[in-house]
Computed example of a mutant assay.
Amino acid sequence: MGGRGPRRELAEKIAGEITLSDDPGATLRKWRTDFDVSQTDLAAELEVSSSVISDYESGRRTSPGIGVIRRLVEGLLTIDEHRGGDRIRQYGRVLSAGFESDVVYDLREYATSIPLSRLYGEVGATEIAAGDTDSVSGHTVINSIQAITRLSSEEFFRLYGQSTNRVLVFTDVTRGESPLVALRVVNPTPNAVILHGLEADELWNHAGDLARIDGYSLAVTTTDLDEVLESLIDLE
């Protein structure tokens, strides 16, 4: 599957997940969707009919063997490379920071600082409390439940990447209480926090107060997570 590095690591991860899944077709579909690749595009890359991909994903064909799985995975990664390699690089950044991709979805540093107002506009976020600074130079997108249950305080701090001058985006949030309380035990705090998946009126009633006390901007968004990730990738 090519040389060492993120591409091979990612190929092995995807192939392993599909092979070990109770529903290999659904797992293949999940990864194809994550890569934003249509059945038609994947079929064209592999020089098969799109019905072949459809049959594997629906379970109409018997579970694919490891040889077929390797071809399918290779097709996804090759398409990503032809598009610029964003998904492979995204995985590589998370991997190099020492995280699993189900805890941290993306971790990125920007070449220049970006105004928070622009970032919020791009991801459809509504600011709840203003912070002490109005720009960021990186972002980390985190599954809040996985981060809180699995990360130590030291690992939590590593979410900041190269700088705390960034926005932390917490997904799978119901009220926002848990991630904001968790942030209180990690110093220093980020410039901004976005809670993904809830409206302003669903937010924990002390959330804005905590943000103001600690000096970071707090915002919420209900924009689809894939759209948020795409918007953050396209920021620069």
Rank of each mutant, 00 (worst) to 15 (best):
E236F: 05
R70S: 06
R4Y: 12
G138M: 11
L168Q: 05
E109M: 12
S49I: 09
E17L: 13
E81M: 10
G59K: 09
A26E: 11
R71W: 08
D214A: 12
R4C: 10
A15H: 01
S163V: 03
R71K: 14
L218H: 03
E47W: 09
I128P: 00
D86R: 15
E154M: 11
T189E: 11
L198P: 02
T62C: 10
I142K: 03
E122P: 01
I66E: 11
R89F: 15
A15F: 03
T221F: 07
V141S: 00
P190W: 03
T19F: 14
T112W: 06
I128N: 04
L76H: 04
D209T: 15
G2I: 12
G3T: 09
L225Q: 05
A182I: 13
S96P: 00
F170Y: 12
E74P: 00
G84Y: 05
G121L: 03
P188L: 02
R150W: 11
G92V: 03
E122M: 08
G2T: 15
G98M: 01
R175Q: 14
E45F: 02
S153W: 06
I14C: 01
L198C: 02
D36F: 13
K13A: 09
T33Y: 12
S217A: 15
G67S: 14
Y105I: 00
L20S: 10
V37K: 02
S101K: 15
N165C: 03
L218F: 07
A11W: 01
E154I: 03
T223Y: 09
T78P: 04
I66S: 11
S135R: 08
L195E: 04
A182G: 13
S21N: 01
Y56R: 02
T78L: 12
F157T: 13
G176E: 01
G25Y: 01
P179F: 06
G25W: 05
Y110F: 13
E47Y: 08
S54F: 03
I233T: 14
R71Y: 08
T126A: 12
A43T: 08
H82I: 09
G16S: 06
P115A: 08
E236M: 07
I142Q: 02
L198W: 04
T112Q: 13
A147S: 05
G65S: 08
T164F: 12
A207S: 08
E227N: 09
G208Q: 05
I14M: 00
G161L: 10
S38R: 08
D132G: 10
I145Q: 12
V186W: 10
Q146T: 11
T223L: 14
A207H: 01
V136C: 04
E199C: 07
Y91T: 00
R32Q: 09
R184D: 13
L235I: 15
I69M: 01
Y110C: 03
V173Q: 00
S101R: 14
